[in-house]
Design a protein around this nucleic acid. Sequence first.
RNA 1: GGCUCCAUAGCUCAAUAGGAUAGAGCAACGGUUUUCUAAACCGUAGGUUCCAGGUUCGAGCCCUGGUGGAGUCACCA
Length: 606
Amino acid sequence: MTDITKEIEIAAMEAVKEIYQVDISPGDFLVTSTKKEHNGDYTLVTFAVSKKLRQTPPQIAAAVGEFVQRTRPWVAGVEVMQGFLNISLAPDYWTTVLDHMRSHPGYWKPVQSREKVLVEFASPNTNKPLHLGHIRNILLGWSTYKILSACGHDVHRVQIVNDRGIAICKSMLAWQQFGEGVTPEMVGMKSDHFVGDWYVRFEKKFVAEYKAWQTSSEAQELFENRKDKDLAEADFFKGYKNNYFNTASQLGSDARQLLLKWEAHDAETLELWNQMNGWVYAGFNETYKSLGVEFDKLYFESNTYLLGKDLIEDGVKRGVFYKKEDGSVWVDLTEDGLDHKLLLRSDGTSVYMTQDLGTAQKRFEEFDAERMVYVVADEQNYHFQALFAIMAKLGAPYAKGLYHLSYGMVDLPEGKMKSREGTVIDADDLMADVIEEARKAAADREMTDPEIVRRIGMAALKFFIIKVDPRKRMTFDPKASVDLQGQTGPYIQNAFVRIQSILRKAGDDRGSYEGYVLNEDEKLLLNMLGQCRHVIESAAKEYSPALVANYAYALAKEYHRYYHDIKVIQAETEAAKEFRLILIKLISDMLKHTMDLLGIEMPERM
RNA sequence: GGCUCCAUAGCUCAAUAGGAUAGAGCAACGGUUUUCUAAACCGUAGGUUCCAGGUUCGAGCCCUGGUGGAGUCACCA
């Protein structure tokens, strides 16, 4: 009797059959755990079947209550409140549950199913270091991987590295022109930050060049001839910036030149490109390590950006796509509520969509996968809708297995992060900050172990981010994120640590707890442990690690309360002590499991 | 403007599949430690769940309309 909810449903079904001679399906009744303010352990909600049985909900509840009490030995008592039937379970039901959990270490996992799944996350550009937005992405990707694995799936972690294009060329150009051979080692800087600095350097030079150009007669003439005569000069040039980069700018021309040379496989350019990217990867790897994540396979855009053309040609042949007179290829997605989408430029070169189609196919082939999850910010919702629609049109066998885990942007209390205004929070700085904050708090407690301090700081940061529903835009308050009290990662760690401390004192030998009658808190805790598998199942189904985070917090909170009220080692009886030692061991295991699903490590002491 | 998403306590977030009196944390105030370590516990205060209708025994959740905010609508990625 491992799933009591189902048992209750079945009993209720039998009751209805016997009393009303009506067949109903198990799903017709809703079974929930009883609210704290009422007596009972589980509640049967009878409103839904009221019409079918032509009885009022309280009548049904009373009749079913009488039936289960008569026929089910595990029912200790019932209480009817309106249409709710609150059922109290017999004491030995609870000890049976404890026995079961103790002897089935995997009881907390959902029903296992095995599919091959790919999760793509992180996927940075190589011209700048990782920032707060990447952290949300990476934590979501990682915990999605963990959660799906806990469901039994064979999950592979991949990312696509955007290592080519105009952005990295800007960093390259700035370093080439002004760097004089300087390296990260020479200036003692983390190497991805080093490359990021050259990117910023480029932007500064470019802005200066642009400002100077604005006074030229050429620029003034453009301004005079603007379409919207009400537009102020500053606003006009703000909007013209991109145009300038692509036309009159010397730096823009140089950067584009570099990109062309890269595409022509110019040896010197490739060498420079390799060096810059090499620095970036070394830095990224440090950051990934700090975050505790790793990948099975990296895809590089420099290898994939030409993929997908075959798919397009094939699609044209089959009439799924169409070619315009200028040679460009399009797909009509109006049936899917979308627009017409470009797939190949008129000069035959590919666009983002082209390579995404090609990369998806390549990955499904390489991994023989059934599902693929893209962890990408919600600003790309439209792109993925289109991508998936095109896949379906092509009749790709994996089209149904595609999922965009779309998450909201991370805002600061002051508003959006803007690189132009220097308000972007760097990932490495942020981790250093939270760990420093943990160190200060630990110092007050005479705790100096740097590994423990690191775990506490990282738990604070990770939990703060991952407790929020991924789909929602979230506000990141740096002050609140280093908080170590209340609804935080360290709060949960503390519950775990408290248990470890008791277990250390109690030793390993466990005696009998036969005949022990649990109190309400213990029933509740046991109940919560039993809920875990459903929580993980929902988290996997909804792609929401936040559900696991909130579960872990709720369990920790319940335990802290229990800890305060109940003695374990000095328990009233030997049976109580033995029971509780096993119970709290199960709780601490569960806290560890669920936090591990979120990528959060537990300290043994704090 | 079209499409998509969001709106819950002063702030940050919860709320099983539509279920009982919408819950936590922070901030504020008050209390609890010779303790299985207080990164804890208990209490007080804080709500027209954006607005107006509708469906339902029952709506924060579903439907319609509106208001406010975000994203997107490139031969960019």
